[in-house]
């Protein structure tokens, strides 16, 4: 059950998108996010949809993995769609129940917003599926490195280290949670039934052992890090050097072409 969490899990494969510089990927992700929000009409959004579809195909990541991520936020999509269906009063009234009016404008708006959320999630997953968590933290560390000029060098390193360790321990802690849940079930704990309060209460015997074991993990990890000559990142050199290649520049150009066409459509239509 818990193993289904795929967000933030790298899909091993060797595609053009996988090979792009992680810094470029993060920056382009931000650009794409902005332009998805900037698109005011279907034309603009469809251009982005086309762009994102091309990217997905280039990643060679199975489509079903993206759908799996969408499934996890399906309630949010349904919720926004329903709200927006009845929100707008424009267009022809299709039918009316009590005070709720379903108009063509409403349908249009609901579809538009649902598509926008879907695109945002998918673009986000493209980054996490094609970039190793370490590359990601590396890229964030490097993108934030200008902060060292204002005396935040240590902050940048500590943040990156924390992210690396957190990502590394997510699968370990998930495994452990499952073990603890099974252990508590074997002792007769009922985790699946009861009202919301009872269920929350049933989580306590899972969370406390998990917390204690995390502290133990942290203690042992700190010792292991010390044994590997870690002294807070002083004089640390990274094995992987990030260098921009032609494909990185090219992807920037392609991304900007698609993004700017959103602006063009916004003005034209």
């Amino acid at each position: 059950m818990l193993k289904d969490i795929t967000f933030g899990q790298y899909y091993r494969c060797n595609s053009i998108i996988h090979r792009l510089d992680p810094r470029i990927k993060i920056l382009l992700l931000i650009v794409v996010f902005i332009f998805i929000f900037l698109a005011q009409g279907f034309a603009g959004l469809l251009v982005m949809t086309l762009f994102i579809t091309i990217i997905i195909l280039l990643t060679k990541v199975p489509i079903k993995l993206f759908l799996k991520n969408l499934k996890s936020i399906l309630p949010i999509i349904i919720f926004t769609t329903l709200i927006n269906l009845f929100y707008s009063k424009d267009g022809i009234v299709l039918f009316e129940i009590w005070k709720l009016k379903l108009t063509t404008g409403g349908v249009e708006r609901a579809v538009f917003l649902a598509l926008r959320i879907i695109l945002l999630i998918i673009v986000g997953s493209v980054l996490t599926y094609t970039t190793t968590p370490n590359d990601l933290t590396d890229a964030i560390e490097r993108l934030l490195s200008p902060l060292k000029f204002i005396g935040l060098k240590r902050f940048v390193h500590v943040l990156a280290m924390m992210m690396t360790i957190a990502l590394r321990f997510i699968p370990t802690l998930i495994e452990e949670t499952e073990k603890i849940m099974n252990a508590q079930k074997a002792r007769g704990a009922n985790l699946e039934e009861g009202n919301i309060f009872e269920r929350i209460k049933a989580l306590i015997p899972i969370l406390i052992p998990l917390l204690i074991s995390s502290v133990r993990h942290a203690y042992e990890l700190a010792e292991a890090m010390e044994c590997r000559c870690y002294n807070g990142g002083e004089g640390r050199v990274r094995m992987k050097k990030l260098r921009l290649h032609i494909s990185d520049y090219l992807s920037c150009v392609v991304c900007l072409i698609f993004s700017s066409s959103v602006v063009v459509f916004n003005i034209l239509i």
């Binding site: 968590p133 370490n134 690396t164 590394r168 133990r216 094995m239």
Partner: peptide
């Protein structure tokens, strides 16, 4: 071994 590995990729 779980408490000694720092990165999510073996070589890193």
């Amino acid at each position: 071994p779980d408490n000694q590995l720092i990165a999510s990729v073996v070589e890193e």
